[in-house]
Design a protein around this nucleic acid. Structure first.
Length: 688
DNA sequence: AGCTTTCAACTTTTT
DNA sequence: GTTGAAAGCT
């Protein structure tokens, strides 16, 4: 290792942020200003100045972000030091605190953590209803209260209408049930540690001593309770660095509050505020548009992004006749840019939209153009244990040499084949360099295993072969559903769930997921009819095995975390923190972005949050950005006139091309238009 | 009363 | 393309 300081190559503002170690520090990190680099470098700097790794806590909002930060830290400070750093989400830090100190709150060490589905069941029970939506509304309301730091009594006080009073009443019983079960929900993972640290001096001193320095990422996303927890953790010393951007606060609707940014200078008069304004991501045109838009919001901290890169391409404005046309234009743009010179990869493109349902039309258009794509979000369905079980079986049907799948299928549900047998089978297959499934029918298997074990394995093997055969020859939705249900009956999966789950309600929920899964597969087996661009066409029917194959591919790619070359489709919310060379921001219309419900008026706060969303969208782009607006848009059954979003005017696109001579500009624009028309023509031909 | 049909609406999401 | 609510039908 060289002796260069960890902060080599940082700009002055970044350096100031890294080296301000002896007091509270707030870094206002504009989009693309290298904030993760600042955090990891600061961690390294803290180590240099004498902190031990275990004394430094870095807090993020998602596990993914924590993972990434740990990777970055690892490459900077080495494996050994990085291992002991307390890099985690607010929630996992909460878990750690409660596991160690929970007894002080009357919580046993092995308390259970309820996920969202579990909570819903408890709420139905506590509220005496079967109405899932009612339960969901309670869940939402109660969660917001808890995130504001309200207990049931305070919540009852805060309740404004009949619905909220009912929710508050349910909340009392809900909390009682949680403590009776020795269970906590996600919100408790913040509120209970806070309660502990504020009421128990001994615990507070212990943890303030343990975690000497705290860094918080995405600080603008903290809610009231998280703020208090941070305060309790850092105590009087106030040794922390908060990194955030008030202009990228887009989670107000789930309890995040920029009050936390306003309060910080008041609560910590010694606070050093350092804005990072140099952007290392986008071209001048893009940054100018972003700055112009966000200028419409009141400023909490003054900052203006700038970049050393040139203006680059002007921002393209697409005006589409309708949703289909918009999708075609977006696809044509991708094809045109790819036809250009070196040609960017598909993964260099993203299509950004306000609401999930907007994705569908773009999916269709991309499929028709044979462009690979992925829709971000969702997919967590496949992480559920019961779904993983069944996917194990499906993977085995697709590829019998998939040993992990074999092990999962052969042991779930239990069928009298234990680890002894499987251990021997594994050794045998390793010796003969074949898969476990292949080994199962080998004649020399008798040398390794007794007859009873072999008989059991053979039965399983025959069943798999039979099932594979059925899966290959079953097509169509109804037949597929019947076949899958028969399979589940064959392996007694429902019984398995009921036996292995202590709580019958949880088992029922899991079985419900299984049925959803069956449904999902069956739907894909039936031919799908769709109308696309006036052409009606039918996807061919698929066999169950075909669908299983698709699932296997998705799973193996996800498992390896491999990035494929595909266009990204994502909501603006989910795009925060990401970037692409080429971005198309679609549906930039009044009503959609800014979003407004039909019957409600938009508050100023809501509009400002929508504006920040627009700002986030613009700043995702590195080299080119296209914004697209609809001239007509669908609303339910009928089509209404589309009003261009006010944010388009705020971008001041005509000014954005700079101080160019008007005549020159006209000439250039004409040439560009002609070139684009050519490209679009060329690109359109092979697509049809 | 309980069923079917029709109509209109349609955020954003992590732990 | 789905879901929930309200109107209409038996």
């Amino acid at each position: 290792m060289s002796s260069a300081p960890p902060s080599a190559g940082l700009n002055p503002a970044q350096l100031a942020a890294v080296h301000h170690l002896d007091g509270p520090c707030l870094v206002i990190a504009g989009a693309g200003s290298g904030k993760t680099r600042v955090i990891t470098t600061k961690i390294a700097q803290l180590l240099v100045s004498g902190y031990r790794p275990s004394q430094i806590a870095a807090i993020t909002f998602t596990n993914k972000a924590a993972q990434e930060m740990r990777e970055r830290a690892k490459s900077l400070v080495g494996n050994k030091a990085a291992k002991d750093l307390a890099i985690s989400t607010f929630h996992s830090l909460g878990v750690r605190l409660l596991r160690e100190e929970g007894s002080r709150l009357g919580l046993k060490e092995q308390f259970s953590i309820l996920d969202s589905d579990d909570v819903l069941n408890v709420l139905k029970d506590a509220g005496g209803t079967v109405d899932i939506n009612q339960a969901k509304r309670w869940q939402w309301t109660i969660s917001l209260w808890k995130n504001q730091g309200l207990n049931p009594t305070q919540a009852a006080h805060a309740a404004k209408d009949e619905d909220e009073r009912a929710a508050a009443a349910v909340m009392v019983r809900y909390q009682e049930r949680l403590s009776a079960y020795q269970a906590v929900d996600f919100d408790d993972l913040i509120t209970l540690p806070l309660k502990l640290l504020t009421t128990d001096t001994e615990a507070r001193e212990k943890w303030q001593n343990k975690l000497r320095y705290v860094l918080v990422d995405e600080y603008q996303d903290t809610n009231a309770v998280q703020y208090e927890l941070l305060k309790a953790l850092v105590g009087e010393r106030g040794m922390f660095t908060a990194v955030g951007d008030d202009d990228q606060s887009i989670y107000g609707w789930r309890g995040a509050t920029i009050e936390n940014l306003k309060r910080l200078p008041q609560d910590y008069p010694a606070l050093k505020v350092i804005p990072l304004e140099q952007n290392y991501r986008s071209t001048g045109s893009i940054l100018r548009a972003a700055n112009n838009v966000i200028a419409g919001n009141p400023k909490l901290f003054e900052k203006k992004l700038w970049s050393e890169y040139g203006d680059g391409e002007p921002i393209a404005l697409l005006v589409a006749d309708g949703e289909e046309h918009e999708a075609e234009r977006a696809v044509a743009r991708i094809q045109a840019l790819r036809a250009d010179g070196k040609g960017p990869a598909f993964k260099d493109f993203a299509i950004l939209y306000r609401a999930n349902h907007q994705a569908r039309i773009f999916e269709q258009a991309l499929r028709r153009a044979q462009i690979p794509y992925k829709v971000s979000g969702g997919q967590s369905f496949f992480d559920k244990a019961e779904i993983k079980d069944l996917c194990g079986w499906l993977r085995l049907l697709v590829n019998q040499d998939d040993d992990p799948a074999f092990l999962r299928a052969v042991t779930t549900p239990k069928r009298g084949i234990g680890h002894q047998t499987l251990g021997s089978l594994g050794k045998f297959s390793a010796q003969w360099k074949c898969s476990m499934f292949e080994a199962l029918f080998s004649e020399s298997l008798a040398t390794a295993l007794n007859a009873r074990a072999i008989a059991g394995l053979h039965e399983f093997g025959r069943y798999i072969n039979d099932l594979q055969c059925r899966a290959r020859h079953t097509e169509g939705e109804t037949a597929a559903r019947a076949m899958l249900m028969e399979w589940l009956k064959d392996i007694s999966y429902e019984t398995h769930l009921l036996e292995h789950e202590e709580n019958e309600k949880v088992a029922q929920a899991r079985w419900g997921n299984v049925l959803d899964f069956v449904d999902w597969i069956a739907k894909r087996c039936g031919g799908q009819h769709s109308e696309e661009g006036g052409v009606s066409f039918t996807e061919p029917k698929q066999s169950v095995l075909d669908v299983a194959q698709t699932i296997s591919i998705i799973l193996s790619l996800a498992e390896r975390g491999e990035e494929q070359d595909q266009v990204t489709l994502t909501t603006l919310h989910a795009s925060k923190g990401l970037e692409w060379p080429h971005v198309v921001l679609v549906g930039v219309n009044e009503g959609l972005l800014p979003f407004k419900r039909e019957d409600e008026e938009m508050t100023l706060e809501a509009l400002q949050e929508e504006r920040r969303l627009m700002y986030v969208g613009i700043t995702r782009a590195r080299t080119t950005l296209a914004v697209s607006t609809l001239r007509r848009r669908k609303r339910g059954r009928d089509t209404v006139a589309g009003i261009p979003s006010r944010f388009l005017a705020e971008m001041k696109l005509d000014e954005a091309s700079g101080r160019e001579d008007p005549r020159e500009k006209l000439k250039r624009l004409r040439a560009e238009l002609a070139a684009k028309a050519d490209k679009a023509d060329n690109a359109a031909k092979p697509a049809d």
